[in-house]
Structures are given as structure tokens and as C-alpha cells.
Design a protein around this nucleic acid. Sequence first.
DNA 1: CAAGTTACAAGTTTTGACATCTGTTACCAA
DNA 2: TTGGTAACAGATGTCAAAACTTGTAACTTG
Lengths: 199, 199
Amino acid sequence: MPARTPLDANAILAATEEILRRHGPDKATVVDVARALGVSHAAVYKHFPSKQALREAVTRRWLDRNRDALAVIAADSAVPPVQRLRTWLHAVLAGKQAKIREDPELFAAYGILAAAHSSVATDHVADLLGQLTAIIADGAADGSLRTDDAEATARVVFNATAKFNHLAHAAEWQNPGIGAELDEVYSLLLEGLHAPTSP
Amino acid sequence: MPARTPLDANAILAATEEILRRHGPDKATVVDVARALGVSHAAVYKHFPSKQALREAVTRRWLDRNRDALAVIAADSAVPPVQRLRTWLHAVLAGKQAKIREDPELFAAYGILAAAHSSVATDHVADLLGQLTAIIADGAADGSLRTDDAEATARVVFNATAKFNHLAHAAEWQNPGIGAELDEVYSLLLEGLHAPTSP
DNA sequence: CAAGTTACAAGTTTTGACATCTGTTACCAA
DNA sequence: TTGGTAACAGATGTCAAAACTTGTAACTTG
């Protein structure tokens, strides 16, 4: 009995996301996904070589949605780079906070998947670093930011704000003061600690 | 049959550490600790009110050893505050890296314990922040560091170096470039990103 | 009475038989 | 050939019974 509706990769990903939301990452099975789609689980294996590949694909889709939302901020040349940097750093944090609030189960699921399949996570970090590099290069171009190497500086800024962008700190993002802490780090990064040599 | 050697809290803590090293945090039982000491498990309960209290005590001892080593660096007034800050930040990282290298099992065990009994962890963070505040206050006093509020600035520096001090990032500390990354963050914190207003 | 013991209730973990899941293969239909 | 099925072996997960762990209490000894 062939399928009524043609099964495509996107439908599988959407169903997987729904199963993940309902069952959590540990209890979500390929059989569950297939049942939700009204097919046998072997049909899913025609589109994805393994359960791991399916999970990676679904994680990548989720991270890419986030990346695209951030890209809009990073590329908004109407906003001065210094302010855009601040907005972008806050948006990275706020986007993840929103995911936690909206759907903690799904967020936890993605957290586990992202940690397990590291190429997905490292690719995402590379995407974000690209956006950050663009903002910093814009600042260097208009003279508002000081840097020798926008890419290297982007890495440093990303490392210095790890508490506000790395999934390992998700528990601390519930704290109401977290946004203010990010602002403080942002300010110190901009201005520096060193006393002026000629006051 | 009373004990030959008098059982004291310190002996229990040392035995617990050994059991933790051998069995890991999930499988280490109070009975194991008592057996290693040649007593019944009820004897251990004469010294510690609960298993949780025993675990906290052993974790606290471990963290305090670290704290004391760092305190020597933080209080070394022979070293200029700016340099002392750099040395201290590296020492926080290096101390934990050394623990991982020496005894990964025990480190993982302590990581789990510290995460579970959060008052132990928050107390330790408060200790470290106290040391960092002292360094920054010294810098403010001799004019080498710029700050309105040494305690607030210490918090910001600690947050900005979370990748190099927070246990959640332990896996990344294996990376050989991690020390260089810390140096880059340290440099950016000192100097700032902003272009000088009057060049 | 200080420092330990044995004995035990309540809760938690291990065990081992059973069920489910993953991934593959051989097959079917448009 | 593309898109599906059914049946299967081996790995993994589940569940109830048995074993162990925690924490307490009543007891023993110098």
C-alpha cells in the first residue's frame, strides 16, 4: 500500500520536532515519528540514513531559524555598529531565553542533541561568529571600533560573552539580573579596564 | 567491639575521597566508606548527619584547597595588580586543568557534587570574587586600574571569563589554545574595544 | 558518656525476563 | 526507479521482584 500523501524530508522533520516536544529527547523514537506520519518506520529510513542523522537535521533546522533571525540584526546597516553589537549580543541571549520559556522540553531536547552531535553545534557557532565578525568589521570601517583583525576580535567577544551565549549556562539565564550582567560585560569590553596612560 | 584507632572527621573525608575516586559519585555509598575505614556505616553517621552533609564537606574541602592556592597569588603585593590579575585568571584555569589531568574520575565526581549542592558552589564563587575584588581594589589604589566599584568590576571580569572558570566549560579546557584565548579576553578587557574619542 | 555496635523500616537501585527500538534486507507497486 | 511494506537480528529499554542503601534506634563497652 503506497502512501497517499508523498512523504518528504520536511514533513518528517516537522513530525520529529512534534514528537520531540511531546516525548522528550530520550523517549522520542523513529517508530513514534513514523506512526505520527502514518507510515512504517522503514519509510523514514529511506529519507534519513540513521536516527542520529534525523536528529542532527532537526537540530540544524532549529539552530538555523535562530541564526536567520540574528542575521537580520547583524546586517542592519541603519544601526551604528556599536549599538548593533549590543543589540545582537542581547538578541542571542533573548532568543534562547524565549525558547526556554515557550517550550522547556523542546529546549532541553535540543540542548542534548546539540551537545551530542558537535558538528551541528560548531557549525552554528561558526555562523554566529560570521555575523559578529561582520558587525565588528563595520565598526572598524566607520572608525567606531578598534581592531586589527575583525574575525579574531569576534572570537574574543564571543568567548567573553560565553556566559550569555553558551547552552551550558542555560540554567543561569532564568536569573532576572542576567540582562544587566550582559550589559556590564558589554560595557567593560567596549571601554576597557586600564586607566588612561595620559589622563 | 570499639574502634582501635579513633575515627575522626578528617579520616572519614579522606576515605570518602578515595571511594569517590574509585567508584564515582553515583556508586559511592556510605557503607563503602565505612568498610574502607573498618567500621560500621552507623559510625560514620555519628560524625556526619547525612550522606549529603558528608558529600558537601568533602566537596568543600576540595574547593578550599584550590581557593587557598589562589589566595596566595591574589595577595602577593610584590606583583603589580595588572600582572597579578592576569596570573590569577590563568591560575584559576590551570588549577582546574591540573585536576582534570591528574584524576579525571575525581574531577568529574566533584563537578557533579558541586553542581548538586549549590550552596557549596556559590560559597566558592563568593570566595573567588573576594580575591578578585582585592586585586582590582589594589589596582584602583595604585592608579593602574579604572573602576568605580571594585566588587562590581570583579563580578564583571568573572562573568567575562566564565569560559575559563566555570565547570560547565571543563570539556573545552582540553583544547591546547585555551590559554591563548584567555589571554585575548584578558587583553580586550584591559584595553577595550572602543576607538579613542580623540586620536 | 563517648564511640562504637547490631538490627531494622523505608526508600532506592540492581537484576533478569520480556518488550520495544534500530537498522537491514528482501520484496511490492506505480 | 522512486517510495513504500513486512519481517528480522541484535541492541536497548521497561518493569516487577530481590538486594542494597540510608537513616534511626536501642544496645554494648571502656
